[in-house]
Write a protein that binds this DNA or RNA. Structure first.
Length: 281
DNA sequence: CCTTGACCTGCCCCC
DNA sequence: CAGATCAGGTCAAGG
């Protein structure tokens, strides 16, 4: 297990993986499912009503992973620029709903939608000196009405969230099972849900189901591939990826970046968004 | 198999 | 300051 102080909290929170976090003074306060977490860099302190080691993937052999993904200069530079950046292992239901809401939306907007859901459907919980709303439980969201969801400013995603919650509530989607399945099977299962396409499925798989070969390709990732890797992934352009092209590209990506491709994606994504001065939480 | 247009919202910009 | 523009994935209809 790596040294505890090698985690950069701000970099990790501000890397597009999580949304329900706020910086209050020197502390980052966030929601993961029914848990509240309080993280502070200086002096270093990690508190959670749940399992913080699980959340921060402290079981990963980071030294080995970073060595494994350091296949080229671009990734090596990205790792150097964002040292201390970690993948997070999120509550699967929250992750699933979060990225369904992410479609055609910006980070700030996703955050606002999720905060609205928590305020309306979550339960108040106290931790440390803070009191905040946890993420809605599956059955609560499954029983929500369309109007309530629309009140949370979900727009056309409201029916996606409703159906997706019903699928989990009826065990049509079982995260414990998906976690055990291989990448391809898990992705195929997720994509049966309305509102989940390739990119969203990859995010859920990577950030909550331990599929480290998942490599979500959004507009930014696509630009990265075009900018730094056009000789390696020849058929990538700025045009939106079709279903087949996405799948083919993902195969090539795993061949090139390896079984921890998801980690390389996270470093590359963080680097390029920072380079373009895109805002985070 | 691919292309196209619709879908909500919030933010930024410009008149 | 109201109104237009744009960014961002997925889906359904049609070529």
């Amino acid at each position: 297990m790596q040294k505890t102080d090698s985690i950069n909290i701000e970099t990790t929170i501000n890397s597009g993986q999580v949304f329900l976090w706020n910086k209050i003074g020197e502390q980052w306060v966030g929601i993961d499912g029914q848990d509240i977490m309080i993280l502070r860099q200086k002096p270093y302190s990690l508190k959670s009503s749940g399992n913080i080691d699980n959340f921060l993937r402290r079981d990963d052999n980071l030294e080995k992973i970073l060595k494994n993904i350091s296949t080229d200069r671009t990734v090596r530079d990205a790792i150097k620029q964002s040292s201390g950046l970690r993948l997070i292992r999120q509550d699967p239901f929250q992750c699933y709903i979060s990225f369904i809401c992410s479609s055609n939306s910006s980070i700030q907007n996703i955050k606002s939608m999720l905060e609205n859901l928590c305020r309306k459907f979550g339960v108040k919980k106290e931790f440390g000196k803070y009191q905040l709303h946890t993420f809605p439980r599956v059955e609560t969201l499954a029983n929500a009405t369309m109007n309530e969801l629309l009140d949370c400013r979900l727009g056309f995603r409201a029916k996606y969230v409703k159906e997706a919650s019903l699928a989990v509530n009826s065990n049509k989607i079982d995260f414990k099972e998906l976690r055990k399945l291989d990448y391809q099977t898990a992705i195929r299962s997720l994509k049966n849900i309305l509102g989940i396409g390739n990119k969203v499925a990859d995010c859920i798989a990577l950030f909550s189901l331990d599929k480290l070969e998942a490599f979500p390709i959004d507009r930014w990732t696509q630009r990265i591939l075009l900018k730094y890797y056009k000789d390696i992934f020849c058929d990538v352009s700025e045009k939106p990826l079709t279903e087949k092209k996405y799948e083919k590209l993902h195969d090539d990506i795993v061949k090139y970046f390896g079984p921890y491709a998801g980690y390389s994606q996270q470093f590359l994504f963080k680097m390029e968004r920072d380079l373009n001065k895109k805002s985070w939480l």
